[in-house]
Design a protein around this nucleic acid. Structure first.
Length: 772
DNA sequence: GCAAGGTC
């Protein structure tokens, strides 16, 4: 049997279709819980099976699980063991791998793909040591690329996989050791741990740096002056002072007084030009996020909806760096498929261009050997998807079209005007040839049409205005922009950047849109910058990339790189441990500051988030016990104190962050409390009696007791597997995977045999069978 | 309860 292993199911399906010339059979292995694609290829029974990315990983041995038992430093030289992260696929791989005579690794054509391939190969070899193997390399799943890859099979690049493995180890060791150290120092254990990592920490540092720049920013006052001018034919337009901004007050006052309403202005010169605007480059993941963000779709939503459309077969693979279409992509037929759809006129217009001059797509600078740029793969109707998904689909289709279209052309005018010896100017612009902007009408700058003007024209000043302004600090990062900066700096990957931002939000380091850091983030970044600067800088990734290149070229061994990395981390710990007390103090002050909500209106002390003896949290006055002012806070979720102040109560607005939910903008705690009381009063009027917290606790206790009683009753007289006492969801899944669906199935099964198949202890199985 | 990287 010939086994072909791909990185994901969709790749397996499409490669099988191409190699079999559509004579493929989808086979389900219910016991294994996987699907494969099978056919005859070169007279051999052939099975194509998809993985789900990495199905194995690495970790420390179990005895390191206790954070307090070992010192964080022990992790540096701790043993590293392989772990299974996807049991179903690992089992299936072994079962099928055992029967294989030859295996082709057909995972993605990049470093992680090589590592994923070697991981799979190692699993197959563990049950079939003599199996023959080779590697297929392809950049797009097109008939051309795939047949070429399978006609030119090559060898597995173990050095490249080693490079990937080195990255795994370094990330784990540095991340875990520093995370534990910082968390233990700050006394933040359990859910509140403070994470550190090669990618997340430099990303967080960017946000903290920007916030510091904003704080250090000193605004400078400046003025702008506009004059409204009218032509003889009574058409008006606005002219502004030639430098736009005026930083000296005396000049602003002089210019303003020289502009006399009712007086004359004279056109000094008119310069007409043409400006050409190149069409945009193809979307890669980063550019897609930025564009989706720009039309008001959050990075998370764009990611989720794109994934749906990819799985439905409408759009190409979502994670790619490439901004250059590979040659094997059939661009013309991708355009032709839109003839007769909503995009008919655009497709036809492009085909006309293609017939005349051939298709000349734009291209960016980045190539990704694993996947082509983002593009549509099937035509769709609006009714095929949700409204927001259509927005995404349309964006991708229009961008795809735009990459083949011509330049947009603008006529521009620059007019210089004399007003009483002061230099004024105005600019005009008009789109004369839509070009690619017809296909891609997003963020189109508006025309600025001026009346017909000629040199020497005398105009009437009908109005004047003086604007008093201040320079603005650099703006905070929006999510799309942050992802682009991460891409430019080379940190994270196309597949992980969005997740890294989510991680920083759920770790309570950043919040809001645009993004801003909590005080805790300041403290963590300050501490790391001082004592472990390596981990906060993008240079660590650059160095790692360089080392990985050397490993993959065989110039240096993986173990040498790891040894050097561990030595470096050990010297970082020398510094950390010397300054243990300082670090603890500075981290804890960050923690305290995040809890200050505002000033107490009764006594003027700080209000902060505190905990009662019973563990319930509330906003209390730091002047306690002299002042006992307090306000309630929701019982669950992370409380984030924002920098927006309620003008009425001098308190910062708060929001509640719960993982997996949208943040709850609670606003000013005092306003919220007042509203809540109003609602209570109204409820009382309407005869609705609110539950007190004691009543609530009682009710929950009662409900839990009732549920327990029901479970016990069922266990005494079970009707389905899940009724059996001690049989949890994990075991139920394992039983189902082995074909045990009902009580009768279990009764009829042999305990020892079933134990071998499922990995459940035979003692447990026998105990369950006893009840039946 | 630790990372970052795949994929869903």
């Amino acid at each position: 049997m010939y086994l072909i292993i791909t990185e994901k199911d969709t790749a397996a399906k499409r490669i099988a279709a191409i190699l079999s010339e559509n004579k493929v059979k989808k086979v389900r292995y219910p016991k294994l819980g996987v699907e494969t694609y099978e056919f005859t290829y070169n007279d051999d029974h052939t099975i194509v099976m998809g993985l789900s990315g990495h199905v194995v990983g690495i970790d420390f041995p179990n005895e390191y699980n206790n954070w307090q038992k070992n010192s964080a430093r022990d992790l540096i030289d701790a043993e590293i063991v392989p772990i299974t992260t996807n049991k179903k696929i690992v089992t299936a791989l072994k079962v099928l791998g055992k029967k294989a005579d030859i295996v082709t690794i057909a995972t993605d054509y990049d470093r992680e793909g090589e590592l994923i391939g070697v991981e799979a190969l190692t699993l197959v070899q563990s049950v079939n040591p003599d199996v023959k193997f080779n590697r297929a390399l392809y950049s797009a799943i097109t008939p051309k690329d795939i047949t070429h890859a399978f006609d030119n099979l090559t060898t597995v690049n173990f050095d490249l996989a080693d490079a990937g493995h080195a990255r795994e180890v370094i990330d784990l060791v540095w991340g875990a050791a520093l995370t534990r150290y910082i968390s233990l120092c700050a006394g933040r254990l359990g859910k509140l741990f403070l994470s550190v990592g090669r990618v997340q920490s430099p990303t967080l540092a960017l946000i903290v740096e920007r916030e510091k720049e904003r704080e250090a920013f000193i605004p400078v006052q400046y003025w702008e002056i506009e004059a409204t001018l009218e032509t003889k034919s009574k058409e008006s337009f606005i002219a502004e002072y030639h430098t736009n901004r005026i930083f000296e007050k005396e000049i602003a006052e002089r210019v303003y007084s020289n502009v006399i309403v009712g007086g004359d202005a004279k056109i000094k010169s008119i310069e007409a030009k043409q400006r050409k605007e190149k069409p945009p480059i193809p979307f890669n993941t980063t550019e897609f996020y930025v564009a989706a963000n720009a039309v008001g779709i959050s990075v998370n939503n764009a990611k989720r909806m794109y994934q749906t459309l990819y799985e439905a077969g409408f759009l190409s693979y979502p994670r790619t760096d490439s901004t250059i279409y590979p040659e094997s992509l059939e661009l013309r037929s991708l355009i032709e498929m839109f003839v007769g759809t909503e995009f008919d006129e655009y497709a036809k217009a492009l085909l006309k261009i293609a017939d005349k001059d051939g298709l000349k797509p734009t291209q960016g600078k980045k190539e990704d050997p694993a996947h082509p740029p983002i593009h549509p793969v099937a035509p769709a109707k609006r009714s095929d998807m949700k409204e927001d998904e259509w927005k995404i689909y349309e964006l991708v289709v229009r961008r795809f079209f735009a990459t083949f279209a011509g330049e947009a052309e603008w006529d521009t005018l620059r007019v210089e005007i004399d007003i009483n010896t002061e230099d004024f100017k105005t600019n005009g612009s008009r789109l004369t040839n839509e070009g690619w902007r017809w296909y891609y009408p997003y963020n189109k700058p508006e025309d600025r049409v001026l009346p017909h003007l000629e040199e020497g024209d005398v105009l009437k000043i009908t109005h004047k205005e003086l604007f008093d302004k201040e320079t603005q600090p650099p703006s905070r990062y929006g999510q799309g922009r942050l992802i682009r900066v991460m891409d430019d700096m080379g940190i994270g990957t196309k597949a992980t950047r969005a997740d890294i931002i989510n991680k920083l939000v759920s770790r309570y380091y950043i919040h809001g849109n645009p993004l801003q850091p909590t005080n805790m983030a300041y403290s963590v970044i300050d501490t790391l910058e001082q004592y472990a600067p390596t981990i906060v800088k993008p240079d660590m990734t650059k160095q790692l990339e360089a080392d990985m290149d050397k490993i993959s070229e065989g110039q240096i061994s993986e173990s040498d790189v790891l040894k050097e990395s561990r030595e470096m981390l050990n010297s970082v710990f020398d510094d950390l441990e010397k300054n243990h007390e300082d670090i603890g103090r500075s981290l804890q002050s960050g923690l305290r500051e995040d809890r200050i909500v505002g000033k107490c209106q009764r006594c003027g002390s700080d209000l902060s988030i505190r905990k009662s003896k019973k563990g319930a949290r509330f906003i209390g006055c730091n002047g306690y016990p002299e002042c006992d002012f307090s306000l309630p806070v929701p019982r669950t979720g992370q409380v984030v104190v924002t920098d927006k102040m309620c003008d009425e109560h001098q308190m910062y607005k708060i929001k509640i962050i719960t993982e997996g939910k949208r943040p709850w903008e609670l606003g000013c705690p005092q306003c919220n409390f007042i509203e809540w009381q109003k609602k209570l009063e109204e409820d009382e009027k309407n005869g609705i009696v609110a539950e007190t917290s004691a009543e609530r606790a009682k009710r929950i206790k009662k409900e839990k007791a009732a549920a327990r009683a029901e479970r016990e009753a069922k266990a005494a007289n079970p009707t389905e597997l899940s009724d059996i006492k001690g049989l949890g969801t994990a075991s139920l899944q394992k039983l189902n995977d082995s074909g045990i669906m009902t009580l009768a199935d279990l009764a009829g099964a042999d305990a020892a045999q079933l134990a071998r198949e499922t990995g459940i202890s035979s003692k447990n199985i026998e105990k369950w069978k006893e009840v039946l």
